[in-house]
Amino acid sequence: MSVIYLLLTLSILVALVFLIAFIYSVKKGQYDDSYTPSVRMLFDDELVKEKKKTNLKTDTNTI
């Protein structure tokens, strides 16, 4: 059997995986709100910073 069959099957399988992944994510509503996540992902950073700042301050005080 020629290797081309194997290659064709593999390539189509990979493509199918992506298609299914895309349809699944649309179905789950991942593309419904394209704005809020972009804001949300910035929050944690700022919160962490805030905590770190206070930590640093207390650290320097104790030293």
Binding site: D32, D33, S34, Y35, T36, V39, R40, F43
Partner: peptide
């Protein structure tokens, strides 16, 4: 968005809150 998604800090019986801004 920030304060509404942190509602659980105000009311511990709130499990999760998610804002759809648009």
């Amino acid at each position: 968005i920030w304060v509404l998604e942190n509602l659980h800090k105000l009311q511990k019986n709130i499990i999760a809150s998610q804002v759809n801004f648009p």
